[in-house]
């Protein structure tokens, strides 16, 4: 019996194609990296030599040299301290923990809200405006209050920050869980009805798998949100051990040591991208779908 399917070309042909693809991707990455650096240095050079002050004045403090920023990572964080890179990685790990816990809490809460809203129209009409409105509450303002509320309960000192991180995380997850569950193929639901399947069975076996693409798209947004939430949460909480503390610290000394803050930004960016990539890779293995057909 002939097999119908997307079986590939001959073996050596496939290998060749894969290698070329990888080279292409690496090439584009290097190109983008080079272009960004060139843009930065070019902009800097141009504004330095012409002395233009719009949109902002460029000097060695506004835009340190790229080499200085990179080399700063290897210099000591402060006098007689380990290199900045080491310090920043430690801080990043601290923030990462808060963000990861916040992501987990936010994802669970978000999914729970999505499921409840899916099954109960009344709950949805009652609470959805507040769920949406909750995101307009400036978390920076309630962060100190969360710290006070949760402090002294025997919880680790960074737990309030994780809660704040969860606050930014739960919303996209809730919205997309609801959308995913609501948009299940009605024919599949009819099939399950013909099997007299229980609501729970249908939820677990059909609705959830169908909404995985929506869930993961929310998780990707939530990954970034959890890191942002963790950083913002640290700012007013006088927590020194995370990236938020590092940003505050180096912002204070910016006029003396601008490269340090730029270097911190780079590490923070890498952290955000790392979280995102973890979710993206997980998605690749978990969500199995037919290839899409778009122009």
């Amino acid at each position: 019996m002939r097999r119908v399917g997307y079986t590939g070309a001959s073996d050596c042909g496939t290998e060749y194609v894969v290698t070329v693809n990888v080279l292409k991707r690496v090439g584009i990455f290097l190109l983008v990296l080079a272009a960004t650096c060139a843009f930065y240095m070019g902009y800097r050079q141009l504004f330095l030599s012409t002395g233009w002050t719009w949109p902002f004045k460029v000097d060695q403090y506004a835009m340190p040299r790229l080499q200085d920023i990179v080399s700063r990572l290897w210099e000591p964080a402060a006098t007689e301290q380990p290199p900045l890179a080491q310090l920043l990685v430690q801080r990043a790990l601290f923030t990462a923990r808060e963000a990861a816990v916040g992501f987990a809490i936010g994802a669970l809460v978000g999914i729970a809200i999505g499921v409840v809203f899916h099954f109960s129209n009344l709950m949805r009409r009652g609470f959805q405006p507040y769920v949406v409105g909750s995101q307009t509450v400036p978390i920076l303002a309630i962060a100190p209050m969360v710290v006070i509320w949760l402090g002294g309960q025997g919880l680790p000192v960074w737990m309030p920050v994780a809660v704040i991180s969860a606050f930014l995380t739960f919303f996209p997850v809730a919205i997309n869980t609801l959308r995913g569950l609501d948009s299940t193929d009605p024919r599949k639901l009819e099939l399950m009805r013909s099997y007299a399947a229980s609501e729970w069975s249908t939820l677990w076996r059909v609705k959830f798998p169908c909404s995985l693409p929506y869930l993961f798209s929310a998780f990707k947004v939530a990954a970034t949100a959890s890191v942002v939430g963790a950083i913002i949460g640290e700012l007013p909480s006088s927590i020194q051990d995370g990236l938020g503390g590092a940003i505050l610290n180096f912002a204070q000394y910016y006029s003396l040591d601008p490269s340090a803050l730029w270097a911190t930004n780079i590490i923070a960016a890498l952290l955000g991208i790392l979280f995102f990539c973890i979710v993206a890779v997980t998605e690749h293995f978990v969500v199995r779908r037919a290839p899409e057909n778009v122009a």
């Binding site: 009819e190 099939l191 013909s194 099997y195």
Partner: peptide, 19 residues
């Protein structure tokens, strides 16, 4: 009969679960 699962049904679209 539906609750007792006395019949099987086939629809126009195969309605197979992709995953």
């Amino acid at each position: 009969a539906r609750l007792d699962r006395d019949y099987g049904m086939v629809f126009q679209e195969a309605t197979l679960m992709d995953w």
